[in-house]
Write a protein that binds this DNA or RNA. Structure first.
Lengths: 185, 185
DNA sequence: TGGGTCATGTAACCTGTTACATGATTAG
DNA sequence: CTAATCATGTAACAGGTTACATGACCCA
């Protein structure tokens, strides 16, 4: 998957591994984290497969750099991937794995767990809302408003997702309190 | 992570690898898929670490089986994991990765993409609603209503999540149509 | 006679994580 | 003086996926 993320970014313009890392951090980070070590490794694989090309640029005062660009074959691969059947709409969830087995710990402790989670999600959601403004600005500065639209969609997803979890946490706390009242039924 | 899922199941009672696989399929499957190959491998690791024990049961007419049970150390580990700081509330998302780069394909195609995704999520959501009834039945048959509560919560999460994506898809289609009207602005 | 259930696993592979290593320049 | 930025990677490990292998019994 990271391979296609890298191809997607290189499709916007040529970049070094370091710049790819930075762009990942600034825009895709909330739904996909990329380590430099993995980026450099995947770039090698992409080059072997002919999806990207690179050239070395010597610099003074800074380390030399290797600038990568997407090839026509790489662009084909990117499109193929975009048209692949969607399978990832049921993501693996660590939260749910933990909640499922929460019968093992005390209701009071679990109530705290949900409250803490809710707090984190709300905070994160607020950060995303400010990110939405940032995306819009960025899009205007850039010429490509059409492409920024999709970035906006991902941020909107994040916002809705955090809101959903927050509501769900509330319902979970409610369920726990209800169960508490019926002890011994 | 799968290790703790297995520990969680064995905490309900002793099981073979095959039964663990079945239980996974019937209850955790929508947020975590487990291959048999991985289950058997993780069981070996858990045994090496002293978190589970096994005994061999010979059978006639069927293959012999190896029944696993959780040890006190394993139970401790399960609790430790449940109390770990929650980090997984921003899951990696394949959907968002694809949407982010969708500027590369045509708006009309992308509109179809969102509609198809919405349809899938709605269908899946309906299946989860019927699953909710199934969980409640199962819980009554089982003595442990308290533990079933957490199962119910995970199903409720799934239902809300599917609804959220469905709403989001609608908003995305709306955004695309709006952008279509402003071509050339 | 063909597919499903019970029941076990191995091997190779792919992807992501953690830890480490280097080294100059520049801004506070 | 110290921390951040630029810029590159390697090595080992952890976790998940795909493909393969075996074999009997039971039901339609």
């Amino acid at each position: 998957m990271l391979k296609h993320g890298i191809l997607g970014l290189l499709n916007y313009g040529e970049m070094t591994g370091y710049e790819i890392m930075g762009t990942f951090r600034d825009s895709l980070n909330f739904f996909w984290k990329a380590q430099t070590s993995q980026i450099y490794r995947e770039l090698q694989v992409l080059r072997e497969r002919g999806f990207v090309e690179d050239r070395l640029v010597e610099q003074t005062g800074k380390p030399d750099k290797r600038i990568f660009s997407i090839t026509p074959v790489g662009r084909e691969e990117l499109k193929r991937w975009l048209r692949e059947e969607e399978t990832g709409f049921q993501p693996r969830s660590e939260i749910l794995m933990r909640v499922f087995f929460r019968g093992e710990t005390e209701p009071a402790e679990n109530r705290d767990y949900f409250r803490a989670l809710q707090k984190e999600c709300r905070e994160f959601g607020r950060n995303l809302i400010s990110a939405e403004g940032y995306v819009r600005e960025y899009a205007e500065a850039l010429e490509s408003e059409y492409k920024a639209l999709y970035w906006e969609m991902t941020v909107d997803f994040g916002r809705r997702y955090m809101e959903m979890i927050s509501d769900w946490c509330e319902e979970c706390v409610r369920k726990l309190e209800e169960a508490d009242e019926h002890i011994g039924d």
